[in-house]
Design a protein around this nucleic acid. Sequence first.
DNA 1: TTAATTGATGCGTTTCATGCATATATGCGG
DNA 2: CCGCATATATGCATGAAACGCATCAATTAA
Lengths: 325, 325
Amino acid sequence: MREGVINAPFSRVRPMNYELQQIKAFLKVVELESFQGAAEALNLSQPALSRRIKKLESILGTALLSRTTRSVSLTTVGRDFFPQAKRLVDEFDHALFNIRALAENRIGQITLACIPTAAFYFLPAVIREYNARYPNIRIRLLDLSANDGLEAVLSGEAEFGINMLSGHHPDILFTPLVVEPFVLVCRRDHPLANKDQVTWTELIQHKLIGVGKMSGNRMLLDHELSELANRPTWFYEVQHLSTSLGMVEVGLGVAAVPRLSMPDDEHPVLVQRPLVEPLVKRTLGMVRRRDSALSPAAERFVETLLRHWDKGSDDDTTAQVSTMD
Amino acid sequence: MREGVINAPFSRVRPMNYELQQIKAFLKVVELESFQGAAEALNLSQPALSRRIKKLESILGTALLSRTTRSVSLTTVGRDFFPQAKRLVDEFDHALFNIRALAENRIGQITLACIPTAAFYFLPAVIREYNARYPNIRIRLLDLSANDGLEAVLSGEAEFGINMLSGHHPDILFTPLVVEPFVLVCRRDHPLANKDQVTWTELIQHKLIGVGKMSGNRMLLDHELSELANRPTWFYEVQHLSTSLGMVEVGLGVAAVPRLSMPDDEHPVLVQRPLVEPLVKRTLGMVRRRDSALSPAAERFVETLLRHWDKGSDDDTTAQVSTMD
DNA sequence: TTAATTGATGCGTTTCATGCATATATGCGG
DNA sequence: CCGCATATATGCATGAAACGCATCAATTAA
């Protein structure tokens, strides 16, 4: 059976199985005032077109076109129907065209929530490449704290995000991108700058600048260092890593920050040293909701992101940044 | 071949052959959040529905639904598409429904142009019957002179009309309904009232009330009497037959009018007498444009009209006015 | 772990729109 | 007035597409 009418008990209502092709055929015939011409325009044989129109008319229960071999004209009903049909078909085509444009990444918008570190230090390159490839897709970048960013993804405000691996939320899918160690940052003229590497315990003797208690980094460190006998305490507390770097720069103290937070290796004032015993690492990765699918535009972005980090990891292995694709 | 692609040279534009059934399937699935349920609602097997959606998605080049065996949810694109699709489909169904209502004479409007005689003396009964059968079809009755009525039909303002047979206009189709003689109308106390019949020549001796030169009746009479040796001249000239009857009633003169213009046989003041030598008759009938088809509502009206007059003509051979049913 | 439910897939079948050939109707020119 | 040219309608065989059935795969609940 072509169309199931399994369950048509005694309905006297005819089903109205009209189709867009029929209506488009009608419109074409009216516009060209010819079956022959419309058939060509529709890549259809003339008999086929005749039958399409006929079918539509039989569905409607009335003639739409008054045709002789010499002329085609609208009936009264057809005249009523034509403008409505034209408008609706146009709107439909327009809507579908837009959807396809969306699907083909010709237009669109993506919203992602990422932690400031990512926003500053490795998203820009990805965004540049993505934007070169899909110039008409707008990007809304929410640079939020780890907690807020996760919340944005959960609520759907952001389609996905870059975050650090923390408490495994059941609705969140985490794809690791990079593992980075915490390093010590201090001025070049600081005593610790002379050492090849520094232990956490050594930090006890220095003024340490840390981040607020609710920060993801702080929670991670508190957890990782909890088993350490003599663990350092924070003297200054700030909210953002960039602030702490600024404070280090003017000589207020030293800081323990993720490797990627450091602007680059050749900073005029600041240097970094590996922090060991223990080696504390954080894992950055992509987070997205487990159930809902990404928009095509977002999928393209994720692809770009992953491709970028595959490439990036090769010349970055010395800094023990590793990515798993 | 199912769809002619005779002429698709190297177009990279995909054809967008989406169909309403696919979109309606999508809407149903979203509404019921289930393929199984939607399939039942659409009287379709579940595999068939799965394939419909899949086809639509392949046309759009993107997934609209995110489905697992346990839940069905919208993708980002699908969420965009749903409200538009819903609105358009609803509007389409509404438009088509109205067209069908129109076709089935459940709603509609007809406009007809008819001469006053017809409007007064034989349309009311037709209209009553028609309205009883099709209560929701509005009737616009243009009671115009013969000339103006013909013009209204030609211009399309009226779908058809009731008129007298006159110059055969090439675009007009005339269907005769009734042939009626011209009769003399005078007061019961008028000398001519004593005669069984009156000749046109006799009228010379009386004050005759006629209608304006452009009237269809006047032109008909001028033409028919042109070969008469002694033909009467009009003393009074008015524009409407009803006016001339009024003037006869107060005793200003006598008038020659079509039989049907007389109110009825038992008028307290007026009587009619056959007018002979020659017997002048006019033919009333339906006029419509040759090319354009009538609306379904109008066709029903014409049917009623003709049925009415078929029946009527049988007991009307005596040249009496009869109202049928 | 198993049973049940839901969507996807393989496959044979049916349907129905199509193209070709041809009939039919209409207007124009001889 | 009649025949010809042109445009739509129809008969018929064909085949592509959509269908239903049976089954698979995946996920949840018990």
